[in-house]
Write a protein that binds this DNA or RNA. Sequence first.
RNA 1: UCCGGAUUAGCUCAGCGGUAGAGCAGUUGACUGUUAAUCAAUUGGUCGUUGGUUCGAUCCCAACAUCCGGAGCCA
Length: 465
Amino acid sequence: MAATSIKQLLAGSIATGNAVTAQGWVRSRRDSKGGFSFMAIHDGSSFDAIQAVVPAELDNYQEEVLQAGVGCSVKISGQLVASQGKGQAFEIQAQSVEVIGWVDDPESYPIAKKRHSFEYLRTVAHLRPRTNTFGAITRVRTVLANAIHNYFFDREFQWINTPLITASDCEGAGELFRVSTLDLSNLPRTENEAIDFSRDFFGEESFLTVSGQLNVESYCMALSKVYTFGPTFRAENSNTSRHLAEFWMVEPEIAFADLNDDADLAEDFLSYLFKTVLEKCEDDLAFFNQFVDKTCLERLQAVADKSFVRMDYTEAVDILEKTKKKFEYPVKWGIDLQSEHERFLCEEHVGAPVIVMNYPKEIKAFYMRMNDDEKTVAAMDVLAPGIGEIIGGSQREERLDVLQARMAEQGVGDELWWYKDLRRYGTVPHAGFGLGFERLISYVTGMENIRDVIPFPRTPGNAPF
RNA sequence: UCCGGAUUAGCUCAGCGGUAGAGCAGUUGACUGUUAAUCAAUUGGUCGUUGGUUCGAUCCCAACAUCCGGAGCCA
């Protein structure tokens, strides 16, 4: 008989008395001298386990059922019945229990039936999905990824699969990983002893992308509403709870739009995502709210209700200068906001997500649109309490002459000729932003370390699984 | 990369200049429609690595490694 997912078994849509089969992994077994054992079985489809009541009369009860501990995989067939005990509505009255896979050595099985620290679980990243926490994170991650695609699909955005390999090293977002097939122990050289990249795979130096934005702009200039959603790579030596060397990013780009349209999109998008996860991950979020972060649900609801505050950079600096709070880094107009400043703004001053707009041009990238004051550019950061910058975006410079001047200022070379072409042929005001997918999940779940919201985190000195 | 902190049983931690302890897990038994079950007994450790100080180092010192927190970079 085909197995039914535990989510379905617990949903109440199958009439009691029906024959069912569940398959999954044992979370716990409790033996009763009343002549049966209770087995809690997980298969990842839901937060809750299903309980199987296994009678001692089964042929393999002594030899197998009583030996099947935490982590063993099993297939259990029987009748779905209303539970006599508290804690679950339904359970399986087992008629057969087949142990599919044993746990070699229960004492050294890394995932014991107890609380483990997240630091420890990172060292067993291949087994940590078996815990409540990582199962819940995985389901939330899936719901959010789907919600992202659904949001854009419903609003006539096209999903653009921008390349992961790029020859441009000037995308302005940090250090790049080199992509090469050259023999490192025998590098080809040019006449003046430089490495001869013309003999490399792509005929020039190439790298893993740090952003799909420049490429997605080209599709935006034809399809109007587009987005990328995929992995991104940064070779920064960043050792923090908010950075990964490999992470996923969502980057929408909209044509015929300015910075305010961009901020509207960011706000509506986040609000939709949070509403969706509140609706679809009730059990998992209840778990996070109880064991990981007591303010989790409250915070999600606040963002779902769109309680964003918008302010100009200039206004933000003004607030920071006037507050009595002492900062390690003094504030003055022209500096980039430090973590402590961003935290003060969204955590203490406002107590909700803040969108800071129109930053000094000196501290922002070449492609951001120059404002009329010629001192600021149309950039925005969405700052979230507890996370910091969750979104960074801008209106793009659509005027060829201004863009060229900015590129020259920042030393960006000719390899972006195609990017300039977009301003030469039917240019249009447009804007977009980048949302760090893992930062979003951190914010939603309350998980403090970004290494715990991606299945196999890559950080400096660390890619073991 | 910089500044702090940590590294002792499978896990979480306590401890002390005279070579070690608890809780949980595991194992065994008792008990029970149980559900982080309970109760009893019990196994289990070159105290991160390498040097140094000392009669003697797990403890003090130094370097290194790894991890954590904060900062920078950013998403």
